[in-house]
Simulated assay, not measured.
Amino acid sequence: MDYHQFKDEVIAYSKEIGIDKIGFASADVFGELKARLQRQQALGYQSGFEKGSPEERAEPDRLLPEAQSIISIALAYPSKMENAPKSKKGERRGVFARASWGRDYHDVLRDKLNQLGAFLKQHVPEVELKSMVDTGELSDRAVAERAGIGFSGKNCAIITPEFGSYVYLGEIVTNIPFAPDEPVDDSCGDCNICVDTCPTDALVQGGQLNAQRCIAFLTQTKDFLPEEFRTKIGNRLYGCDTCQTVCPKNKKKDFHNHEEFEPDPEVAKPQLIPLLSVSNREFKEKFGSISGSWRGKKPIQRNAILALGHYREESAIDELVRLMEKDPRPVIRGTVAYSLGKIGTPVCFQAIEQAIEKEDNEQVLYEMKKGLQFEER
């Protein structure tokens, strides 16, 4: 087979099925990535959500022994929402990060990769392949960088010339020996805006992220949020866009190429108070199709409670007090006590004092006493 010609055919087919950008990389070991991952692990900078060891994440032939090349794809997603509802007193709203707008990107990219894989099998019946999106062992970003999709910015995102960093990435490891594409030149230059603007100093330096401090990670945790971060998350319910929205490379980048990624404003920017009483079934019906729902409703509700404290939203007091008194989850009861303390009305402090009399969980009691400390400030 003429693999040079076949590569052109694959590129043409990718455009037919709505893939915004495609690139080809060798399946050689990602030596620099492996060293970086080992360093991240030693420093305790990993999130814990990563799949596989540094070796598995950097050596494609561990995933497909016959691996000769990797196909990287990118789909652009919107950065702006039409008719976005306003958050106002009495109707405060939270926000999901742009990468969680619309249908779960994992599903959309898998569909594209499956179509691409079927095309490869149709033309090369003996083909071996393994595809993955985000949750696979390989680093999507390292593959995309090698395949010329874009360069790895100081904000630890792939920045494409066409779409900025508002792209989802996926890849297929294959035994077809496609010729590799040329990487894109890094053009961050002296710009350090993302590093300087990160709310929690999670970007240790350009290109190095301490995931344990990253708001995108913190909003997905299920335990009590460490206090130093509670004033930083604002009204974020899932994810964080700061290091992307401040990036000059993203200025005027807003693509609506895929209907699946168009946000439902009431899902992407939901009212906070109704979130507090949503059932598991209701949560799944409303939010189950977006990527931000993967950890379930508990982290979202915890973040909503913190957002109401951030807004000092007095209309939420009754519902917050109900949760503090009746919710079976210690993280929710304790977080409510903290936020009631921030709202800071006499009713809030009285409710916390009454709840202390009935509470027997040590962590919750600690949070309740912390909530009462706001009365002294």
Rank of each mutant, 00 (worst) to 15 (best):
Y3K: 03
S14F: 10
K15W: 02
G23T: 03
A27I: 14
E32Y: 01
Q38L: 15
A42H: 08
L43F: 04
A58H: 12
S69P: 06
A74K: 00
S79D: 09
E82A: 11
G102H: 02
L113Q: 07
Q115T: 09
G117V: 10
Q122S: 15
H123V: 02
V124S: 09
P125E: 09
P125D: 10
V127I: 15
S131L: 15
V133L: 08
V133D: 11
D134Q: 15
D140R: 03
E145W: 08
A147C: 09
G148C: 06
C156M: 05
T160F: 08
T160A: 13
V167D: 04
G170D: 07
E171R: 08
T174R: 14
A179M: 12
D190P: 11
N192Q: 14
C198P: 02
L203N: 08
Q208T: 10
F217T: 15
T221D: 05
F229Y: 15
R230M: 00
T231M: 01
I233T: 08
G234E: 05
Y238C: 07
Y238S: 02
V246G: 06
K249R: 15
D264K: 06
A268K: 09
V278P: 03
R281V: 12
E282M: 10
G288W: 00
I290T: 14
I290A: 09
S291P: 01
R295V: 09
I300P: 06
A307W: 00
D318A: 15
E319S: 15
L323K: 06
K326D: 13
G334P: 08
V336G: 07
G341Q: 05
G341L: 02
C348V: 14
F349K: 13
A351N: 07
N361S: 12
R377K: 11
